[in-house]
Amino acid sequence: MCDCCNESNTKKQVIEVDPQYSPMEGTIVKTKIMTETEKFFEIKLEGGKELGHMPGQFVQFSLFGIGEAPISISSSPTKEDKSTFEVVVRKAGVFTSAMHKLEEDDKIGVRGPFGKPFPVDDLKGNDLIFVAGGLGLVPLRSLINFVIDKRRDFGSVDILLGCKAPKDRLFTDEAEGWNKLTDINHACTVDQSDPEWKGNVGVITTLIPGVDINVNRTYAVVVGPPIMYKFVISELLKKGMPEKQIILSLERRMKCGLGKCGHCQINDKYVCQDGPTFTYEELKGLEEAL
């Protein structure tokens, strides 16, 4: 567009717009190295303002000069201290590497929460199976803790965790705690063992046959890498699970979070608005989904 010949005397005006893309200010109040590549952050919004999220949603973190990245929220809105929320970030690119350098008292920009949460109202009154592979436990932990905090609203709860090696396990303290809860069944497996590991060895699907499923009143919530979905879903379908009772959460690189920029689009769905949580029924025909 050439503006050089535009000499008309019309009123060019610079006007304020709604700061839709301007982040809120977050302060990091706690960090913890979880594995070689994963770091935990607890973040407080300005003035202790509640984020107001539900399990399954995500935020856009912002660092000026570097950019933005979508990150799943890992804490439950039922958490005692409502003035903070928690995330776990894997060092995978420029933004996440920069974020890993942040420590307590550092500031970070936050936009959100975005996305469609897990359908907690549909889950109520039903038995639940949580299946998490690797980093999938991060968003799922929000829902697991939500369910634990509202335990009487739900039926039996099975938590199945899988990861590559024992050293990659996340939230091990919390998982220990789940072991002690009598109203929750918790099983964990690793793909590759190490000398100290005394638990299950094998891919996560090996845990599914051991779960007693009443297909009429059970929801499975599955979060993990794309390859895991294919195998876990086929195992659940084998058990007779209805497609609409299998819930998934997808990862895409959203840029705007507002259903515009097109980056997260899967066929006719925008992951940032129609997801990131979907039922398998919604996704099964979509080639680009899994």
């Binding site: 060019k12 005006q13 610079v14 304020e16 839709q20 982040p23 977050g26 500031k107 970070i108």
Partner: peptide, 14 residues
């Protein structure tokens, strides 16, 4: 740099 909120959000119209 170092801030978290944008210092201004405007658009030029004519």
């Amino acid at each position: 740099m170092g801030e978290t909120k944008m210092s201004s959000t405007t658009v030029e119209v004519e």
